[in-house]
Nucleic acid binder design. Structure first.
Lengths: 285, 285
DNA sequence: AGTTCTAATGTAATTAAATTACAACAAATC
DNA sequence: GATTTGTTGTAATTTAATTACATTAGAACT
């Protein structure tokens, strides 16, 4: 919890003089961080030790330390806020807002994601005989992306964005196979069925979906992101970015688990593209 | 520009002792902000005034002021330097690093993106008779995602991740058609060809690619993101997230341009999914 | 209402920290 | 090799923050 919030939060437990200090700080936080304890004391019309005591009450070591925390609060506060796009926004406004709310979403995702589950998912994936990525609608592109990452690892990977193929694939799965079901809401009936079928056939099912959703119930392992989606636009935006980052994390975990020798393989995959590309030097003349 | 970046940036202009100070600070920024000038001087094995001069060189009022700036830099959570995944990172470390470097990438993308071009791209897209999204490899999933967004707008949209189809589609394009080519490097030969073909057939070609790349040359409009990609993992990660956000921005711009009546259409598309989903109430009992 | 106790606040002294002025030194130039 | 310029450190000074203690205000109890 940042200091500014803490000041507001513990407002009731302040004494009269501490109140005065709090008010001055909240009114001019930016000035506060560049003031000495004497200047602030004068502004709040209290003595210097009162300011010092105020700082200590907020679990800081003293005034300088308090300023440090305050500075951090101020820096943190502004950047990543979830701002909604409004009807009258111009290109500048909506561009900024979408970038910022996406970053905000990633920030909350980072805080909510369960490292332990990620680790277990990586475990499961590294030991998989075959990995299947299933997604529908907007999540289909996430599934494709996942396939694009994991096929580089020289593991059998498939990706289906079609219920019929998914269903057939699920029925054919067996012990040692891993099925990754991707769905933001976790309420798509067909995908729930498919997860159930895969599990009945002894596959390990990893869900990249909402915690406490019907799909989550069907999964062996649930990777939940808890990203607040801006539904004003009726399109999945931030949630899908978070899903992709999660895929990146799983893929990274995978490569790290495999060790450095394996990483050379990845380079080979990348190098294989050379022929199909313009080299930088070709272009610079 | 934040202090950490500034330290890295002005690395060359430092003297020998200042270098020592910079190294110590970059290595333990968190410790630095809680140290006195004496402690830091000792760590860097220099005198106190040297540290002070170092602070002043970075346009701060002195050491305490420098610590304030440093605290703010750190607070942003965003990466400074060396947020790359290391061999020995555990799940906690690599998860944090990937989230942070992705957010950092979005932040730089936001700063570099040209609003004017975005606006023109939205113009072009709203007036398109048909929109085609082309991508190969990792960019294919971005193209799919774009299709998933734009088809909701009731405009003819196609998406191909296959050079043959792309080529045929490009040849058949005509005045009023918009082709969006997606490629991080902008050096994929086949895609450059396809962009050229589309333009020869009077289509407007929008490139989501690197500025100053062969592909960029072939495009009518270039949306450049300038995201520094961490190539350690040999996989496109941050760049692709930035591309997706850009797609979100274009889609949002599109809906805003079309006005509020149009937005009701979007809701209808979303509502159409209802039958295929578990309702929240169904699940809660 | 008066007394006593406790908590809150301020004053003054102390300590710690940062900055300045200046001297010594190293490296570069003539 | 001398001189100049720039860099670094030592010691003195100044400034800021903290502590110890005294005072006051307010609450609780007689």
């Amino acid at each position: 919890m940042n200091v500014l919030e803490k000041i507001v939060g513990s407002a009731t437990s302040f004494s009269k003089s501490e109140r005065k200090v709090a008010d001055v700080i909240l009114a001019n936080p930016q000035i506060t961080i560049h003031s000495s304890i004497a200047a602030l004391a004068k502004m709040a019309d209290v003595s210097e030790p009162t300011v010092n005591r105020f700082c200590r009450r907020l679990d800081t070591k003293g005034f300088p330390d308090f300023k440090l925390h305050l500075a951090q609060s101020l820096a943190n506060g502004t950047p990543y806020v979830n701002r909604h796009v409004e009807e009258e926004d111009g290109p500048e406004a909506y561009t900024a807002k979408i970038f910022e709310s996406t970053m905000a979403a990633l920030d909350t995702a980072r805080q909510h994601v369960d490292i332990n589950t990620i680790n277990r998912a990586v475990d499961v994936l590294t030991q998989a005989k075959k990995i299947s990525f299933f997604g529908l609608g907007a999540s289909a592109s996430v599934a494709h992306d996942a396939q694009n990452k994991f096929f580089r690892f020289n593991v059998p990977v498939v990706c289906f964005d079609d219920i019929v193929m998914q269903r057939m694939s699920a029925i054919n799965s067996s012990d040692g196979d891993v099925v990754v079901c991707i769905s933001h809401t976790g309420r798509t009936k067909n995908l729930c069925d498919i997860a159930a079928i895969a599990r009945e056939n002894d596959a390990t099912v990893i869900g990249i979906t909402a915690y406490d959703s019907p799909l989550a119930r069907e999964c062996t392992l649930v990777l939940s992101l808890d990203v607040p989606e801006d539904t004003d636009m009726y399109m999945p935006m931030a949630s899908r970015v978070a899903q992709l980052v999660l895929i990146d994390i799983l893929a990274t975990g995978f490569t790290l688990r495999r060790g450095s020798k394996f990483r050379e393989n990845l380079k080979k995959v990348k190098d294989s593209l050379r022929g199909s590309r313009f080299e930088k030097k070709d272009f610079n003349n």
